[in-house]
């Protein structure tokens, strides 16, 4: 459903992704792996059109979106749970969730029903400013905000990074549930190989802005991990 072919992307004069190829199978979790600084986050930014410049072909549901504006891609069904969560700190929890609604295909701005099921804490504290929440709560809020757009693809950038350990497992299970129960396609950038193996069907490994290895997660060998991912 999301296919990148020969994609290059730039920040200023820095050429970050080189002739990138990627194909996301609908209804699956696809893990993007790689060491720090290889272009994983840039890949997500590029998919949303947030880098300075991109070329190549990026087809989403049969439409080439490489030259469309970020908000159009969001409205077409691509949502992001970004690195650092990027909550609007002075907006309340409710306002933060409703922000996602600007990308809802019907233009509906409301708190989706699954949020109350997944994150009861958020529903009980709707008027708290987002900036006062803990890291884990902000991560839940960022996921809720992305879900308010009723996305077709969810981009997640290290969703368990910097979160207290007892919440990590809860977030991980939520991600798996979003995929298995609600059929959401997820592109998961992850450093945590164990979780990536548990959750994802396919993987792609990036090195220096190029995909260097990929396939089914069950075929991901320790040898490959050692070669590309160990520090």
């Amino acid at each position: 459903m999301l296919d990148l072919s020969n994609v290059n992307t730039f920040y200023g004069k820095s050429h970050i992704l080189h002739n990138f190829e990627l194909s996301i199978e609908p209804g699956t979790i696809h893990a993007i792996l790689g060491r720090n600084g290889v272009g994983k986050t840039t890949l997500l930014s590029c998919i949303l059109g947030l880098t300075d410049r991109s070329d190549g072909t990026m087809s989403f549901n049969g439409r080439d979106i490489i030259s469309t504006a970020t908000h159009e891609r969001a409205r077409a069904g691509i949502s992001i749970v970004p690195q650092g969560r990027q909550i609007f700190p002075d907006f309340s929890i409710k306002e933060n969730i409703l922000m996602g609604g600007f990308a809802h295909p019907d233009g509906k701005r409301q708190v989706p029903d699954i949020v109350s099921e997944l994150f009861p804490y958020l529903i009980d504290n709707m008027s708290r400013p987002g900036g006062l929440l803990s890291g884990g709560q902000q991560q839940q809020l960022a996921i809720a905000r992305a879900l308010a757009a009723a996305p077709k693809v969810l981009l997640m950038d290290e969703p368990t990074e910097g979160i207290q350990p007892n919440i990590v497992e809860q977030i991980e299970n939520t991600i798996i549930r979003l995929n298995s129960e609600f059929g959401l396609t997820i592109l998961l950038v992850e450093q945590n190989i164990k979780f990536a193996r548990r959750a994802a069907k396919n993987y792609t490994i990036i090195e220096k802005g190029c995909p260097v290895d990929g396939g089914l997660c069950r075929d991901l060998t320790d040898n490959t991990i050692h070669k590309y991912l160990s520090v």
């Binding site: 970020t70 908000h71 969001a74 970004p82 609007f88 002075d90 922000m99 600007f102 990308a103 757009a149």
Partner: peptide, 14 residues
């Protein structure tokens, strides 16, 4: 607050 994130939320920034 955050123009890029606003755009990613579907806001037509321009």
């Amino acid at each position: 607050r955050n123009a890029k994130m606003a755009a990613a939320c579907g806001v037509n920034v321009k």
